[in-house]
Write a protein that binds this DNA or RNA. Structure first.
Lengths: 197, 197
DNA sequence: GTTGACATGTAACGAGTGTTACATGTAACG
DNA sequence: CGTTACATGTAACACTCGTTACATGTCAAC
C-alpha cells in the first residue's frame, strides 16, 4: 500500500509537470493539493527536500519509460535517433523532458540554487548516444553533435510547439549522416573528391 | 554627453551579464551600483521598465557587434556557420548570447513574465541562417536543423564550458553537410544508391 | 537669493516567501 | 479507557519583494 508521502509525491509530480519548477512556492502548491504548507514541510522537512524527492521520482519514471521503449524497439528497423526522438515527443514523456531541460538551464545560470538537483543525466545521455552510434563514428565530435541536434530541436519544439517542422529536421539530419557516410565510404576506396571541381 | 539614465543602463548591463536575469531584484542591484532602489524606480518607472531598457541596450550592442563581423568577414573564405560560431563564442559576445538564451528559456516556460521581453530575435536568426545557405538547401528542415545545431552546441558550451569539444562538433557538422552534398550531387547524375548494398 | 527642476535617500506599506510554535484531530494498541 | 504515534490546521515570525510617501540635496536660471 502507498504511504501518504508517496501519494503526495505523485500529486506533486503532476502539479510540477504543468507549472514548471522555477516559480513553485509552498502555499500555492499546497492549495492546489487541497492541503497546507505545514503538511508539506512535515513530510519533506523543507522545500529543498520536497524538490529533491519530486525530481527523483520524475527521473525514475522517465527511466522506466525509456527502458520499455528500448525493449519494444530493439528489434525495430527504426534508426536509434529517430526512435529516441519519437519517444521524447510522445505526449506521455514530453512534459517530463521539458521539465528536466528547464532544470538544466536553470542550473547552468544558477548553480548554487539548482545545481544540487542535477544528477549525472547529461553524462548518461552521451553514453546512450555513444552506444547508439556505429563504432567507427563514436568520436567525441559526433557524440557531441548528435546530442546538440537533439537538444536544439527539443528546445525549438518547446518554444514553438511545431512538431512537424522539428521532426522533419531530425529526419533531414539522419539523411545527412547517411549521405555523408556514403561519400566517406567512396572516398576511402578511391579519391573521388577531385571530381567535385 | 551621456545622461544619467544612460550611464545607469550601461552599469546595469554589466551587472546582468554576470548575474543573469532570473534572480535580479532591485535592492541588491542598487547596492551593486552604489545607489538605492528608489533611484532605479525613479529613472525606469518600474522593474519591468528597467528590464526592457537593459535588454534593448544589450540587443543593440549585439547587433552592432554582429554587423562588424559581417563587414570584416564578407570577403573571407570561412564557412558562414563557422564564422558565426567563432563570433558567438568570442569572449566579448558570449555573455550577451548566454543571457539571451536564458531569456528565451525563461520565456518558454513562463511567457506571462518574460514573453514581453522577447522580440523577433528567433525569426531574425532563421532569416540569417536561410541567407547563409545555398538556395537549393534553403528548406525549412535544413534551416531548422542548422539553427538547432547552433542552439544545442551553444547550450552545451554554456553548461560545460568545453570550447574545444563543441567547436570540434561544429566542424564535424560542416564536414557532414559537405560530404552529404557530394553524395547528393552524384546521386542526381545517376542513381548510385543501389550500389550501397 | 529665491525658484524650480532634477536627483537621491530613508522609511514604510502590503504582499509573498520558507519555516516554526502550538493546538488538534484520528486511529491503533495496551 | 488511556496512551501513543502519526497527521493536519491556524497563526505567527522573520525575511525579501516591488513600490510609494516624504524629505532633502544639488545646481542652474531668473
Amino acid at each position: 500500500m502507498q504511504t501518504r508521502k508517496e501519494t503526495l509525491v505523485d500529486e506533486l509530480v503532476e502539479y510540477m509537470l504543468v507549472n514548471g519548477l522555477s516559480n513553485v512556492s509552498l502555499r500555492p502548491l499546497a492549495e492546489a493539493l487541497g492541503t497546507s504548507a505545514r503538511l508539506l514541510i512535515y513530510h519533506f522537512e523543507s522545500k529543498e527536500g520536497l524538490l529533491t524527492e519530486v525530481l527523483e521520482r520524475m527521473q525514475t519514471r522517465l527511466r522506466q519509460s525509456f527502458g520499455t521503449m528500448l525493449e519494444r524497439g530493439s528489434g525495430s528497423s527504426e534508426r536509434p535517433l529517430k526512435q529516441f526522438w519519437d519517444w521524447a515527443i510522445a505526449a506521455r514523456n514530453f512534459p517530463y523532458l521539458r521539465l528536466l531541460y528547464e532544470l538544466q538551464i536553470l542550473a547552468a545560470q544558477n548553480p548554487e540554487s539548482y545545481g544540487q538537483y542535477l544528477q549525472q543525466n547529461a553524462s548518461n545521455w552521451s553514453e546512450l548516444i555513444a552506444m547508439a552510434l556505429p563504432e567507427n563514428e563514436r568520436t567525441p565530435a559526433m557524440v557531441t553533435l548528435v546530442g546538440a541536434v537533439f537538444d536544439g530541436l527539443f528546445l525549438e519544439l518547446m518554444s514553438t510547439g511545431d512538431r512537424k517542422r522539428t521532426t522533419l529536421a531530425i529526419h533531414h539530419f539522419i539523411k545527412l549522416v547517411d549521405d555523408a557516410r556514403e561519400t566517406s565510404r567512396v572516398t576511402h576506396k578511391k579519391s573521388a573528391k577531385a571530381s567535385a571541381n
